[in-house]
């Protein structure tokens, strides 16, 4: 378990973190999300002491992290960087096993561990183990970046916006990968992102941050359903949170005709509910604040086609 107690970070004329209090349960997938300047990366880097707080204490398993031997602490905290940062002079298996090497593992053990991890993330060890980082695509490099953080089985894995530089397809694949690894490995994952969509997709718990303060902590559903303040609500909208498309979206887009027939559906019904209803009868009448409106199958198809085209 990790606890922040009144942690502040003061830069010369800028308060990056203001009396932060935060508890991260063991084996959680915890996401810190917020716009730039919110203090999320500062919070993360305090855990492996790349940044030291100016005030307050951080506890890791009930012991202050400043009381740990620095090297021992860092060896328990895997670290995945935004820019991937594979060492360009080392090949893939050497990169993966760099911490193992510093712990004095035998060469045989290091290679075995690297190969095992490579196959765990669907990279063929025979093909990848001895290549140089520059020969890999961005997505492949970050897979290696992730398993490098796992090589000596740390208790905690810190990830600092690890997918922000990747294309959408690689990002999705790697999100699936870290979810799978989290399920399999029973480690605490702490993940920083500015992408609310990513936060909702990955986080068991999410902390929304802004200007050095935590705005809200909760599960994705809790935050979605009950945003603590306007900032959190706005952040969701700006980030195109994956809300299920509702009938209201069609109405907003200008589909449907005024009718006097009796409504069979409400505007907050999902699009799939509308599709199901259209199979039974067409048009389907929906209640709106402006009165009932009729939606036909061509309306739904046009809407979906237009949305697809966006």
């Amino acid at each position: 378990m990790i606890e922040f107690k009144n942690v502040s970070k003061q830069y010369e004329n800028n308060l990056a973190l203001d009396k932060l209090n935060l508890t991260i349960p063991s084996q959680d997938f915890f996401v810190l999300v917020g716009p730039s300047g919110s203090g999320k990366t500062t919070t993360l880097k305090m855990l492996n002491r790349l940044i030291e707080p100016t005030d307050g204490n951080i506890y890791f398993d009930d012991k202050r992290i400043i009381d740990y031997d620095l090297k021992q602490l860092r060896l328990q905290m895997g670290y995945v960087l935004q820019n991937i940062a594979l060492f360009p002079n080392l090949n893939i298996q050497e990169n993966i096993a760099i911490q193992a090497e510093s712990l004095g593992w035998s060469r045989k053990d290091r290679i075995a561990r690297a190969r095992h991890l490579l196959s765990q993330v669907d990279l063929d060890p025979d093909q990848y183990a001895t290549r140089m980082p520059s020969e890999l695509s961005g997505g492949e490099q970050q897979r290696v970046g992730i398993i490098r953080a796992l090589a000596i089985k740390p208790k905690v894995v810190l990830m600092d916006e690890p997918f922000s530089a990747l294309d959408p397809i690689s990002r999705k694949q790697l999100q699936d990968l870290v979810l799978r690894l989290h399920r399999e490995l029973k480690m605490t994952f702490i993940f920083v992102t500015h992408d609310m969509h990513e936060a909702l997709r990955l986080g068991q718990h999410i902390a929304v941050m802004r200007l050095g303060h935590i705005q809200q902590i909760g599960t994705g559903d809790e935050i979605m359903q009950h945003p603590a303040n306007d900032f959190v609500r706005g952040f969701f909208q700006n980030e195109h949170a994956p809300r299920p498309t509702t009938v209201q979206s069609l109405l907003d887009a200008g589909y449907g005709e005024a009718t006097t027939a009796a409504a069979t559906l409400t505007a907050d019904a999902s699009v799939s509910a509308l599709a199901a209803a259209l199979k039974q009868t067409t048009p389907v009448v929906v209640t709106t604040v402006q009165g009932p409106r009729a939606l036909s199958t061509p309306d739904l198809l046009d809407y979906l086609a237009a949305k697809e085209a966006d």
Binding site: N48, L50, L70, K71, Q72, L73, R74, L75, M77, Y79, L81, Q82, N83, A85, F87, P88, I98, Q99, S102, L158
Partner: peptide
Amino acid sequence: DPNLEEAATAFGL
């Protein structure tokens, strides 16, 4: 590259 320096430091080398 400072990122590489940061990585090496964070790995406790």
